[in-house]
C-alpha cells in the first residue's frame, strides 16, 4: 500500500453531484495545494466497493480503516480531517448488480448501516451527524421540516420553492431577514448538521429543508468550501 498524505477534506458523493465536485475544487483552490492532497472526492460506489475494517470495542470505541476502490489509498481514522457524506443513492457493489432486487436492497441497507457507524465514530469530524439508516444525516419528510418550522412560529407552505437559504457553520447565505437566518440555524442544529438548506416559497414561507444542500445558490459553494476548510483545520489541530 503506497503511503498517502492526509486527505484533509473527504467528500463522499454520488457521480452526478455537481455541487460536491464544485466544492471539492473550491477547497483545493483555497488551500493552494494540489487537489489530491487537500481534498478527496470519493464516489459512493468506491466506498461501497472498498476494503473495510471497522471495529467497536466493548466500551464503544470505534476504529475504522477503509480503502475505497480501487484500493490505492486508504482512510484511517487518524487521517481524516473532516468528512462530508452527501450521497443519497443506495450504494451497490458490482457483485450485487447481477443479484435479485432483494439482494441489491439488502446490500445497500447493509452498506448504509456500515457507513453510518463509521461516520458516527468520527465524532465532530463529520459535517452532519449520521442517522442509523441514513449516513447523510436527517432524511426527514418535508412535512416534518414544515412542522418544526411552524413550531418556531414560521409560516409554511407547499407552494413551489423559489429561494434557498444555506447554513454553512456560522455563516448563513441567502437569508432575507434575521428571523430567516435564525430559523435556518435552529433547524440545522436540530438536524445536527453544519451544512443545511432551507427552501422557501416566493412569500418567504418554509417549503422544505435538508442536510445535503444542492449548492446552486450564489456563494453557496464558497461558503461550503470555507466551512470544510475550517473544520479540517480544527480536526488537524485536534
Amino acid at each position: 500500500m503506497p503511503t498517502t498524505r492526509r486527505p484533509l477534506v473527504t467528500i463522499v458523493a454520488d457521480a452526478d453531484d455537481t455541487g460536491a465536485r464544485a466544492t471539492a475544487q473550491a477547497v483545493a483552490l483555497a488551500a493552494g495545494c494540489g487537489t489530491r492532497h487537500t481534498v478527496w472526492l470519493v464516489p459512493t460506489d468506491a466506498l461501497a466497493r472498498g476494503r473495510w475494517h471497522h471495529t467497536v470495542d466493548p466500551d464503544g470505541t470505534p476504529r475504522t480503516h477503509v480503502e475505497p476502490w480501487p484500493h490505492r489509498r486508504s482512510l484511517a481514522d487518524d487521517q481524516v480531517g473532516v468528512v462530508w457524506f452527501r450521497s443519497r443513492c443506495p450504494a451497490v457493489t458490482p457483485s450485487h448488480g447481477a443479484g435479485t432486487a432483494a439482494d441489491r436492497a439488502y446490500a445497500a441497507t447493509e452498506l448504509a448501516a456500515l457507513f453510518s457507524s463509521w461516520l458516527l465514530g468520527l465524532g465532530d469530524r463529520v459535517v452532519t451527524r449520521p442517522e442509523g439508516t441514513s449516513p447523510a444525516g436527517a432524511a426527514w419528510d418535508a412535512t416534518v421540516w414544515r412542522a418544526l418550522a411552524a413550531a418556531r412560529g414560521a409560516a409554511v407552505s407547499t407552494d413551489p420553492a423559489s429561494r434557498r437559504v444555506l447554513v454553512a457553520g456560522d455563516r448563513v447565505v441567502g437569508a432575507a431577514t434575521d428571523a430567516e437566518a435564525t430559523l435556518a440555524r435552529d433547524l440545522a442544529e436540530q438536524a445536527a448538521s453544519r451544512c443545511f438548506e432551507l427552501t422557501l416559497d416566493a412569500h418567504g414561507r418554509v417549503v422544505d429543508a435538508g442536510v445535503t444542500p444542492a449548492l446552486t445558490g450564489p456563494g453557496h459553494v464558497a461558503a461550503a468550501a470555507g466551512l470544510l476548510l475550517r473544520l479540517a483545520a480544527r480536526g488537524v489541530a485536534a
Binding site: 467497536v56 464503544g60 448501516a113 458516527l120 439508516t133 441514513s134
Partner: peptide, 17 residues
Amino acid sequence: RAMHSNGSKPYQAQLIA
C-alpha cells in the same frame, strides 16, 4: 425518526456504550 438508531447495529452499539 427516533427509531433509526436500530438501523445500524454498530452505530447503535456506540450510542449504547
